[in-house]
């Protein structure tokens, strides 16, 4: 095993480096200080013509080494192809720790890598640390967010996934003299088993781009029906925000899975989160409690959401929101 922390660097369907890469880089730089400045490394699988586009971003985010594998077929993510390439690359790099963003791609790929390498993977971590004995400690919520577990790994690399927006990218310039290393992997015997027939992008104008939203108006069970969510949309439009939902609201068919906030959904950290008809189960609040300010509207004055919010009003969102819209 060589020293160092490897960050899997996801490329989005628009050919950008995923923002979670910068968040993980910042964390990796912090961890490496407790590891005698072990190198912070990236692994990226990309189309050959694009690697130069990413170089500056890698340098600026504090990477010491960037390992890249190029192939024309890397333009579209496919589990079998990426797993085959990534497993070979990680074996060659042989890092002590490997971090992966818990995006759709990361959650699909990371368990293939860890299983193929015979090592452990701790999912959706909210805290990462190096213990005094040098072990990597990954902390994550479990049991619907009610229990925190710190998990260690006996095998190497010690792997963890982290959702976007859990850590912050560096605010200061951490430019390093990054070394770029081209790697080769053997994909000659790759026979595609998965074929992507078509991809329909979610419409940006309609899409609740929760990840970057400054203001989120979210609804739960209390928003009852489509009219309830239409009210939320109106309020969100007025405030220049986006609509989110609790798991129960998604299960009731009031909102798509893509806007679900909470443990089995997204983690968000907007400037303002307005929770309407959401009771505030931990399962939900761990996905939004890092919002700068939280306002809650709920008919039940004992709802746990009021324990974590800054401002609250006891009342029916169906009456309150229309009044807000008129103001």
């Amino acid at each position: 095993m060589s020293k160092g922390i490897l960050v899997y660097s996801e490329i989005t369907s628009d050919d950008y480096l995923h923002t979670v890469v910068f968040e993980l880089a910042n964390k990796a730089v912090e961890l490496s200080k407790k590891m005698e400045d072990a190198p912070v490394m990236a692994l990226v699988l990309t189309k050959p013509d694009l690697i130069n586009e990413y170089k500056e971003a890698f340098q600026k985010s504090g990477f010491d080494k960037v390992f890249y594998v190029v192939d024309e077929r890397f333009g579209t993510y496919r589990t079998d192809l990426f797993a085959k390439a990534a497993v070979q690359a990680v074996k060659q790099i042989d890092p002590e720790i490997m971090l992966v963003g818990a995006t759709c791609q990361g959650r699909d790929l990371a368990p293939r890598i860890s299983t193929a390498l015979g090592t452990g993977l701790t999912a959706d971590c909210t805290g990462l640390d190096i213990l005094e004995n040098g072990k990597f400690a990954a902390t994550r919520p479990t049991f619907g967010g009610q229990l925190m577990a710190t998990i260690l790994c006996k095998k190497y690399p010690q792997m963890a996934s982290v959702r976007p927006k859990v850590f912050k990218p560096s605010e200061v310039d951490v430019t390093r003299d990054t070394v770029f290393i081209k790697m080769s992997v053997d994909l000659d015997d790759y026979v595609p088993q998965i074929e992507v027939l078509e991809f329909t992008k979610k419409l940006v104008c309609d899409l609740n781009d929760l990840d970057s939203a400054k203001i989120i108006v979210a609804g739960g069970k209390g928003m009852k029906n489509a009219e309830g969510f239409a009210l939320l949309k109106k309020l969100a439009d007025k405030l220049g925000g986006c609509v989110g939902a609790s798991r129960v609201a998604v299960e009731m068919g009031l909102a798509p899975q893509a806007v679900q906030i909470g443990q089995t959904g997204k983690t968000v950290s907007p400037k303002l989160y307005i929770a309407c008809g959401i009771s505030g189960a931990l399962q939900h609040t761990i996905g939004m409690n890092s919002a700068e300010k939280i306002i809650a509207i709920n008919t039940d004055k004992n709802a746990p959401i009021f324990d974590i919010c800054d401002y609250g009003i006891v009342g029916d969102a169906f009456e309150i929101i229309p009044k807000l819209l008129e103001l």
Binding site: G120, A137, I151, K154, F306, D307
Partner: peptide, 24 residues
Amino acid sequence: SPTYVNKAYRAPQKETECVFVESC
């Protein structure tokens, strides 16, 4: 199992004093 739980503890609760308002 390659991984094991080193410690488990109750999730810390964020303590915020909610300011209740009455009107829209």
